[in-house]
Amino acid sequence: MPLSDNSRGALLMSLAMAAFACNDALVKSITTELSIAQIMAVRGLMTTALVFGIGRYLGVDMSWRIITNRFVIFRVCCELGATLTFFSALKRIEFAAASSIMQSLPLAVTLGAALFLREPVGWRRWAAIAVGFLGVLLIIRPGPEGFAPAALFAVAAVFFTASRDLATRRVSADIPSLSITLFTSLANALLGVILILPMGGWQPVSGSTFGHLALTSLLVFAGYQTVIMAMRSGEISFVAPFRYTSLIWALVIGVLVFNEHPNLSMLVGAAVVIGSGLYTFYRESKRQRALAETAGMVLEETSAGHGTGSKP
């Protein structure tokens, strides 16, 4: 029995989140051997080579004129900030905690869209955003006991990533997604090369570590492509919430691979963040349906008016 568009989209989104979670776990596993800068440099070069080869094969426009677009430049800068801060978080705090904080990304995107893109956000979604960020506070546990300052790296990564996603919305539709990915990965590689000396210099890369880095570049590319396929397969309001399956992967990987034991505060905070995010998806889908119904009614009335006016 063939899958429906929504089921296919949900499956693809879940696979994408599994790819990203495995990528993050591999990065965390080598942060004890290599600096963040060296990881960015080597992985960035690998990803650039991979994307360039695929782009050439598909005949995608990858000319330098693309990076003269101001929104592409801003997006790349935000991606660099997100990579630096999230890798810093992965190096210093528990894997599941960093992933849990990143679950607030949809809330941050909604907040940014309301503040900077003037998208309408009702009081219910404002309340959901506020509750969601309270969930983040439960995860990072501010106060004299239990607070890890390094968790703020993950919080910063959320806002850098949200800014990147908002900038993506403003990039001209005639600029290929693969080209944006190419210049983003190249920028990551260049920044990593620049920061290698300040962050401790070049360290020898073992065969095992090199294999980890090669696999991360493949997982990142696979994750981005399956996300695109997922969002084009079904209804966004149905497919998008499956982003939260990444937290399931993060918790399982944290326990089995890194021997982590999430505490009650982190689990409750993650549940609050996910619940708030799901509610914002629900309210947005409801708003979109209402707008579609209103547009349909206006179209019917207009058609009826024209029909009446055309009678002799």
Rank of each mutant, 00 (worst) to 15 (best):
S4Q: 02
M13G: 03
M17D: 08
M17K: 07
F20S: 07
C22F: 03
C22H: 04
K28R: 13
I30M: 00
T31Y: 00
T32A: 15
E33V: 05
Q38H: 08
M40P: 12
A49N: 12
A49G: 08
F52R: 13
G53N: 04
I54S: 04
G55F: 11
L58F: 03
S63R: 15
R65N: 10
R65I: 03
F71C: 08
V76T: 11
T83N: 04
T83D: 00
S88Y: 00
S88F: 00
S88K: 00
A89Q: 02
F95W: 07
M102Y: 05
S104C: 00
L107W: 06
T110I: 15
G112M: 15
A113Y: 12
L115N: 01
P120K: 14
P120H: 09
V121E: 10
G122L: 15
W123T: 10
W123L: 10
L134D: 00
G135M: 12
L138R: 08
I139T: 09
R141T: 07
A150E: 06
A156G: 14
F160P: 03
F160A: 07
D165N: 14
L166E: 13
A173W: 05
D174Y: 08
L178V: 15
L182S: 01
T184C: 09
T184W: 09
S185A: 14
A187R: 09
N188Y: 09
G192Q: 03
V193L: 08
G200Y: 02
P204C: 00
G207D: 07
S208M: 08
H212L: 11
L213H: 06
Y224D: 12
V227K: 05
M231N: 14
S233H: 13
Y244I: 01
W249P: 03
A250Q: 05
V252P: 11
V257T: 01
E260P: 05
M266W: 06
M266F: 04
V268A: 14
G269D: 02
V272A: 11
I274P: 00
F281M: 12
Y282L: 05
S285H: 11
K286I: 01
A295C: 01
A304Q: 11
H306T: 14
G307L: 06
S310R: 12
K311G: 02
